[in-house]
Design a protein around this nucleic acid. Structure first.
Lengths: 194, 194
DNA sequence: TTTTTCGCTTGATAAATATCAAGCGCATTT
DNA sequence: AAATGCGCTTGATATTTATCAAGCGAAAAA
C-alpha cells in the first residue's frame, strides 16, 4: 500500500524503514479522495491536515477584493499541500486549496504527526527537509518575482517546472506568474518553444 | 558576552541553557566585524558561514545583466544572514550580501553547526524554527509580490516592517519591493503616512 | 445531438510603471 | 570653504502590462 509514499520517506530519511516503522507511518495518515474543483482548505478555516499528494493536481491561492484568484503554489504527485502557518499555529488561513484533477491525498494532523515523530524519529528529517526545500524554493520565487519581466518569468517557469504546463491550464499559469492570461498568451506567441 | 544571542537561542529552544551549554555555543561561533559596504558574501562564492547579526544592518541581493540590484532580504539585529541553499549544498551562490551599517556578526560553519547540534540538541530547535519562519515569511512575500499593486506592496511593507524604513534608504526599499525608486517616491507623496 | 461552458486568442484601448533627465539639499571628503 | 557624492524629488515621455470585448473551437453537459 502506497509504495511511492514509502519510497518518498525513505529518500528523505536516507534510510530504509522497517515494515513496523512503515506501519506506524501508515496509521498516522488517513487517505482521502478529492474530486475535481472540491476544496481541501477554505479561507477562514484552520488548516487541520498536512496532505501528501499520492495522485492528482492541486493549487493553493488567495482571492482579492475584486474576486481575482492569485495562485501561490501548485502541487502534484509527491508534493505536500497545507498552509504551514495555519497548520502549525492553528490560526485561520487566508488561502484556498482545491483540486484541479481527481486527487488522492494522505492526511496527518499536527497531533498525530508529533506523536509519529516521537515513535519514528526519522520523520523529523522529512519535515526538516520539507521546510528547508520549501524555504529555498520560496526564495528563488521571490527573486524571480521582483527581478524578472513577464516574459522572463514565463521562460524561467518553463525551464524549471515544465510539468506545470502539462497539468494546469494557461490561465492558472498566468495567475501563478502574477500576470494576466492575455499577456501570457501573447508572450507564448512570440516564443515558439511549445 | 553576547547576552542578546543567548537570550535569542533560549527563546527558540523554549528553555534556559546552562553556562556550559552556552560555552559550547559560544565556541562554535566566531565573531566578525563588517564595515559599511563590505561584502559578507559575493556571487560565485560558496556561502561558508551562517551569520547571526549582533549589531548592524545588511542586505542580500542579486545583480542582473543590466547591473541593476534586486534586494531579496534585509537583515538587522537578531536576524540570520546566509544563502541557505549555498550553505547547505556547498554550491556557488547567486547572491551578494553586504553591510549597510557597521555590523557585527557571529559566524558558524556547517561542520561546526552540525557538531554543535550533536552536543547541544536544543540547537536543532533553533534552526528548525528558523526554516519554518523563513518559509512562512517567504510565502507571504510571494503572495504580496504576485497579487498586490506597487502602492499596496508599499503599504504592506510599511505595516509589517516599519523598521526597514528607518534603517535603509528609500532606493533600497524600492528594490526590495521590486519597483523603481521614482515610483516609490511618488507613491509616498500620496500617502501622508510618514 | 444540441447546447453550454471553458480555455485560448486577438485587437483596441487604458492604466500602471519604468526610464531619462535635471535639480536640490545635505553630508562627507578634500 | 569648496567640491563631490548620494539620496530624494519632480517632470516629460516611453514601455510594459492590464483591461475590455469579441470570437473560435473543443470538451462537457443536457
Amino acid at each position: 500500500m502506497y509504495p511511492s509514499f514509502r519510497k518518498y520517506i525513505d529518500q528523505y530519511t536516507g534510510d530504509t524503514m522497517t515494515d513496523d516503522e512503515f506501519e506506524l507511518v501508515r496509521r498516522a495518515f488517513v487517505p482521502k479522495k478529492i474530486r475535481k474543483k472540491q476544496y481541501l482548505l477554505q479561507e477562514g478555516d484552520v488548516c487541520k491536515y498536512l496532505s501528501f499528494i499520492v495522485k492528482g493536481a492541486m493549487r493553493q491561492y488567495t482571492v482579492d477584493e475584486k474576486g481575482n484568484e492569485h495562485i501561490v503554489r501548485f502541487g502534484i504527485e509527491n508534493w505536500w499541500m497545507a498552509d504551514r502557518e495555519s497548520f502549525e499555529l492553528l490560526t485561520p488561513t487566508i488561502y484556498n486549496i482545491d483540486a484541479w484533477e481527481e486527487t488522492e491525498v494522505l492526511q496527518v494532523t499536527l497531533a498525530n504527526l508529533t506523536e509519529l515523530k516521537e515513535r519514528f524519529p526519522g520523520m523529523n528529517k522529512v519535515t526538516t527537509a520539507l521546510d528547508k526545500r520549501g524555504h529555498i524554493a520560496a526564495q528563488k520565487r521571490i527573486t524571480a518575482a521582483i527581478s524578472l519581466t513577464a516574459e522572463e518569468k514565463y521562460l524561467d517557469l518553463f525551464k524549471t517546472h515544465p510539468i506545470f504546463f502539462q497539468r494546469f491550464p494557461q490561465t492558472m499559469i498566468a495567475s501563478y506568474l502574477g500576470i494576466s492570461p492575455e499577456t501570457l498568451s501573447r508572450i507564448r506567441k512570440n516564443n515558439i518553444l511549445k
